[in-house]
Write a protein that binds this DNA or RNA. Structure first.
Lengths: 172, 172
DNA sequence: ATCTGTTTTCAAATATTACTGAAAACTCGA
DNA sequence: TCGAGTTTTCAGTAATATTTGAAAACAGAT
């Protein structure tokens, strides 16, 4: 193996390992993040077995996390003609990755929060004590803010990257 | 206990429980989120023992998570004159909560990612193969985007709520 | 200096989450 | 319809994260 190839392998391995560690702090499981890193930096879409081998993980694990990445929309399944098995290709465009992650996190983190806040505000609507009103107000304020944040996230996700950059440069 | 008080207690308990569950998906531990919910809706700042009792948790657990909330800046320690023990008061202003969480998540999630990307881009700088260049470009693009996102987060966090609203209404 | 109520620490116990390995269920070609 | 290659599932196991409980440290009050 040439010097250059070795260097590249080292850099890539580090990226995979570190991205995995980061994933953990992001509330994403380590393996899923590692696979994502691997696919993002793969010259050709790997198969399940390639992933298993590179990361030294079991078939079940590789399969589950690849499926999860596909469910997020961060990875596409590719079928090659004449090949039975599936290959996996990561989205590499940073703005697309960003909008996908933003949408997904909104769906998982923001929408359920809104639901909770709405229900709590509703349930405390009619409580006539001072404490009751304070609680109701708190729920309402939180709910309105989260609603606002949610809308903003939608708007930004729907933008083209160029437009976002342009807007940013105008404002800041 | 009056009807109204019971209703309120029920609503509050639900909020605490659900906020705790949400916290989990946010990558925040359940107890920390529950305590936060409890404090946000407390008419008076509770003591460690109050928290222990309300949530039925151990002293060590209550203590650790209260400290963590204080470290985030979401909770303040209050000392009452003539009282030896400490009471804990949550920040209730939604915009402040948002900016604190944004800052903290940036510090924990974005900054380390930037660091990794920068190092990988640097290490692959000099690799002259096609694959090497592709890897380097990928790292650079990711890095530049994360850098951009990071700056935006800073700017937004530094805004006054009114200004943010105004800006939002102008743009969307 | 000692006592008392309180906070802080941390090793051990528990709970949660992720992973493995192997078997079952597909899929397509012959 | 059968069989080889591949994907999917899942019960058991391993790894990780959280919580407990009890002891140590601390800070006034006497």
């Amino acid at each position: 193996m040439s010097e250059a190839t070795q260097q590249l392998k080292a850099a890539r391995d580090e990226f995979v390992a570190q991205w995995g560690a980061l994933g953990t702090q992001w509330g994403i499981n380590r393996t899923m993040a590692q696979i994502h890193a691997l696919l993002m930096t793969a010259p050709e879409p790997p198969s399940t077995d390639d992933v298993m081998e590179e990361l030294q993980i079991s078939r079940g694990n590789a399969h589950t996390n690849l499926k999860e990445l596909v469910a997020w929309g961060l990875v596409r399944v590719v079928v090659r003609k004449g090949e039975r098995r599936e290959f996996f290709e990561a989205e590499k465009d940073v703005w697309k990755i960003f909008t996908i992650v933003a949408r997904e996190r909104k769906r998982r983190e923001i929408d359920p929060a809104l639901e909770v806040l709405r229900r709590c505000a509703e349930e405390s609507q009619s409580i006539e004590t001072a404490e009751g009103r304070a609680f109701h107000d708190q729920m309402k304020q939180l709910g309105e803010f989260v609603e606002f944040a949610s809308r903003m996230a939608d708007k930004v996700s729907a933008m083209k990257y160029g437009f976002a950059l342009q807007m940013a440069s105008k404002f800041f």
